[in-house]
Design a protein around this nucleic acid. Structure first.
Length: 565
DNA sequence: GCCGTTTTCGGCCCGACTGTTTTCAGTCG
């Protein structure tokens, strides 16, 4: 796994930085980032092109390439082992504490013999930290708070918990007198599936009023800071920051606070190359003359590229594309015309067919598919042929005006690659979703073969969670994506982007799009409220560069029915 | 340690904030 080697390089960077080594840490971090974002396994590159293949990767030169080769050949890197020995064992965890960076950690190690979180807690209790040179009363209490935070495990939150809160804050601020613009920034604007905190940017004639309303909102558990233009509060475990800005710098600030950090660093480098300087206050000439700040779009334009949608700002090829004017228009939530994966009380859902249909109608969908589990899925009360037959009649009887309800099933892919119903049964269905729910422990090759074999069935229309590394709670499995994509493409089967689970990494969707596969954004809803998960699926699709033409359920009903045939 | 239409040597993103200083280093976003 690329992550393994990236972790090692990152750790080497941390240790070097602690010891005050200049520049080298940056090089290691950059190399680690490159490996993390790599689509192909580094071993594959090495097997194909040897050490020069590694050296061709940006940020990886002779020395790091040699170390990677050493790792491939021996499973170890001598320089890394040596570095690890130069610091005590538990120091790594100290680096995760907010307000403690490599330099301060190293001070603690050297001057106070603090080698672990445990040592640190003891030293805080004894009041030793504040007496160290470079530390003081305040630092000690900050560190103490940081330790509690780490121990509480707080940090990152899933987007489906954070976005509703952010929208609520936005709504509240929009109502304040004098407010002109309110935008959500940060990783939330990029629609990352896991986000740190909420960042909201505002322009207003009366900043103080905004701060008052924000800090007094329902659900605020603690006010971390309240100033005239910037405040931070906690909503239980979620931190939210609001900044009021001058309208003339709003675009530059929005660009800056949206990130990602990697994207911003790269954009700034481009600015420098063009003889400019970019900060959150705008794009400037070397002379200090302001060129652009009001609008994000203009900043990108002045840097010689097209606008980069927030969801793509991960430094994964978006800048190259923007410079060539090749950024696609991404799929939008309002383009989704149907949800094709829904469960009802018949298997493991909570609501009836009619209730699900009504909720879908409220979403203004043109069509849905009811897709309960098949017979082998005993835990989920899967339907045998007899119950299925009755269930299909029920679906046919359910009428909601203006909504087409397809009769479907989420059919298990059995261990041998066969489907859970025979073809005679499958023939009665409008839509068959094939998916794996058991036997996760097979090898990558076996899983791939099993899925590809199921895809040969003429009735399969959709493959559920095709990502290869799906964490179905405790059941990760791996497949050869290229083979699965090829099989799906050949048979015109749509690959599902499964929304309720945070298991899709951007790369899978991007790869599927690039391979020419059709995708479908379904919610796998087990209750009416889960239909709201569609927006997160759209977010995942957007981050994977998907356009509406890639997504099968953006088709209007008539065209969708054609695709079904 | 990496990299190069300003460089094979000398750079490496920028600015605010904080706490500790007595002019600045470290951390953060």
């Amino acid at each position: 796994m690329n992550q393994d080697i990236a972790d090692i390089l990152n750790e080497m960077a941390d240790i070097l930085e602690m010891q005050g080594v200049q520049w080298k840490p940056n090089a290691y971090k950059k190399a680690a980032r490159e490996l993390e974002s790599l689509e192909t396994d580094f071993r594959e590159i090495y097997n194909k092109d040897g050490i020069s293949g590694l050296k061709n990767l940006p940020g990886i030169g002779e020395h790091i390439a040699n170390k990677i080769e050493e790792y491939i050949k021996t499973g170890k890197i001598k320089a890394y082992e040596k570095l690890k020995k130069s610091i005590p064992n538990g120091v790594g965890e100290l680096l995760r504490i907010p307000s403690l960076g490599p330099k301060k950690v190293w001070q603690l190690v050297k001057k106070a013999k603090i080698h672990s979180l445990k040592d640190l807690k003891k030293a805080i209790k004894q009041g030793k930290i504040k007496n160290l040179k470079g530390f003081g009363e305040k630092s000690q209490s900050e560190i103490s708070k940081g330790v509690s935070m780490i121990e509480a495990g707080s940090g990152k939150n899933p987007i489906y918990r954070v976005l509703p809160l952010a929208l609520e804050i936005k709504k509240n601020i929009e109502k304040v007198k004098g407010v002109k613009k309110v935008e959500i920034a940060g990783s939330l604007r990029r629609m990352k599936e896991v986000v740190g905190d909420i960042d909201i940017l505002v322009t207003s004639d009366y900043p103080e009023k905004v701060m008052d309303v924000f800090t007094k909102m329902d659900g605020v558990s603690r006010i971390l800071a309240k100033g005239s233009t910037k405040s931070a509060v906690m909503f239980s475990s979620i931190q939210a920051d609001v900044r009021v800005l001058k309208p003339e710098v709003f675009g530059a600030a929005l660009q800056y606070f949206t990130g990602s950090k990697e994207h911003n660093v790269a954009v700034r480098k481009i600015a420098i190359k063009k003889g400019y300087k970019l900060s959150e206050y705008g794009l400037f000439e070397r002379t200090g003359k302001l060129i652009a700040a009001k609008d994000e779009e203009i900043i990108y334009k002045r840097l010689g590229m097209s606008y980069v949608p927030p969801q793509l700002r991960e430094l994964s090829g978006e800048l190259e594309a923007a410079m060539k004017n090749k950024i696609p228009k991404l799929v939008e939530l309002n383009e989704i015309n149907g949800d094709l994966h829904m469960h009802t009380k018949a298997s493991d859902g909570m609501h009836s067919i009619a209730e699900m249909a009504k909720a879908a109608k409220e979403k203004k969908y043109e069509y849905i598919a009811i897709t309960d589990h098949s017979k082998s899925e005993h835990i989920a009360n899967g339907l045998d042929e007899k119950r299925l037959s009755k269930h299909l009649e029920e679906i046919a009887k359910t009428k909601v005006s203006g909504l087409k309800i397809f009769r479907g099933s989420e059919v298990d892919i059995l261990k041998n690659g066969d489907l859970d119903y025979d073809n005679k049964t499958l023939k009665q269905l409008d839509i068959v979703i094939a998916s794996i729910h058991s036997g996760f422990k097979s090898s990558k090759e076996a899983m791939t073969k099993r899925i590809c074999s199921a895809l040969q069935n003429p009735y399969v229309k959709i493959l559920a969670h095709p990502t290869g590394r799906v964490v179905l709670r405790r059941n990760p499995y791996e497949v050869n994506l290229d083979k699965v994509f090829a099989a799906a493409k050949e048979r015109g089967i749509a690959l599902e982007i499964n929304c309720p689970r945070l298991d899709l990494r951007d790369i899978y969707v991007k790869k599927a799009v690039e391979s020419g596969c059709k995708l479908v954004i379904n919610t796998d809803s087990h209750s009416t409220d889960q239909l709201n998960l569609m927006q997160y699926g759209v977010g995942i699709a957007q981050r994977g560069w998907a356009q509406s033409k890639n997504i099968i359920n953006t088709l209007p009903l008539k065209q969708f029915e054609k695709w079904l045939k």
